[in-house]
Design a protein around this nucleic acid. Structure first.
Lengths: 198, 198
DNA sequence: CCTACCGATCGGTAGG
DNA sequence: CCTACCGATCGGTAGG
């Protein structure tokens, strides 16, 4: 029992540290956040953090890896389903916005702080992000092939522009806005899929 | 003559420092860049920087203010011209991409590093960025009013999504790619204005 | 988890 | 523009 409780407490404290780091990295950036900032947020002295974590970079690795996985887990199953490409894209857009809205600060870390990963961990993160982009590319390619999407599309530019529009939502999206994330995603899909011209 | 040359030299060195800071802030972030990094890039010892500049934050203020001005100068005249809204939007998109492509790192500083401005300078930067967004909002509003754009558009979401797609280009755009910035902007305008559905 | 501390690096300055 | 340096803060550790 004592061991179980200890493990539980330790894991809970680790989670608290990861959460504080996620919010601070998202708000102030990785290099703009000190271990003392994180310790203050958790309510512990700086040196005490190292009983629960390996170091500053290990925090970033965990947050980025977990964050990318959330996007992939939400979107890849939709991309690989059998619905029409246009339907899949709309659902992927909504799923993406739901992940961003679930925690915009985590999303900001995924989008911008991966640059500060070390030489070992950065390639894996870049690879996973590329896999995410590829999921959208596959569906766009399908859609062009079966004439759901415009034949003369520059597919690479279209995917990058679409993903940019989605990712930028972490800058302005507030988790407690009037519109639900799903409604927001639906409206963004309207603009991105159908355009804005009458 | 001597004074003129001195002033010239001093101004040239100031420019070199600003350029080095711009690239480093864009690549490593403001908090991830030390004055020693900047001094190394310029080829001078750290203390020598202070003969030309006031301090680290003064560098950021200059770079951000100048950067926002470039976007406004390129886009506002088009927004306030008398062409059809759809034409204006396409031209604004192209102009925006041309400014990003002219120096993606400066754009990254404008987009992401303004958070590290102090309490005096940040509000002005936020205001100027808002003015930039407003230029797009005005044109979209015009377009909806005269039925060039979809009547059922959520205009705020449409503008934020469009600007996100544009701003994100600083992440992937390479100044020496095969497509010219104007061609790139035109393709992005195709996607953003007309959508991707067939 | 705290006390007490390490060497390294930070932005910036005085004096020449 | 350099020499020489300042106090503050950084990520992290030993020992309890």
């Amino acid at each position: 029992m004592t061991e179980a409780v200890d493990t539980e407490r330790e894991s809970a404290q680790r989670t608290a540290i990861l959460n504080a780091a996620m919010h601070l990295f998202g708000k102030q950036g990785y290099t703009g956040t000190s271990m003392r900032d994180i310790a203050n947020a958790v309510g512990v002295l700086p040196g005490s953090l190292y009983a629960h974590i390996q170091g500053k970079e290990a925090l970033l690795i965990s947050i980025v890896a977990d964050g990318i996985n959330r996007f992939l887990a939400a979107v890849e199953p939709i991309a690989d389903s059998s619905a029409p490409a246009a339907t899949r894209l709309r659902k992927m857009i909504i799923a993406h916005i739901e992940v961003v809205a679930d925690n915009p600060q985590r999303s900001q870390v995924v989008f911008h702080q991966w640059r500060f990963l070390g030489e070992q961990s950065q390639p894996q993160a870049v690879e996973r992000r590329q896999a995410y982009e590829d999921a959208f590319s596959r569906v766009v390619k399908d859609g062009v092939k079966n004439a759901e999407l415009k034949a003369d599309l520059n597919q690479r530019i279209a995917v990058l522009t679409l993903l940019g529009g989605l990712n930028w939502s972490a800058e302005w999206l507030s988790p407690d806005g009037r519109l639900s994330p799903a409604q927001l995603g639906d409206l963004m899909a309207d603009s991105l899929l159908g355009g804005i011209l009458a």
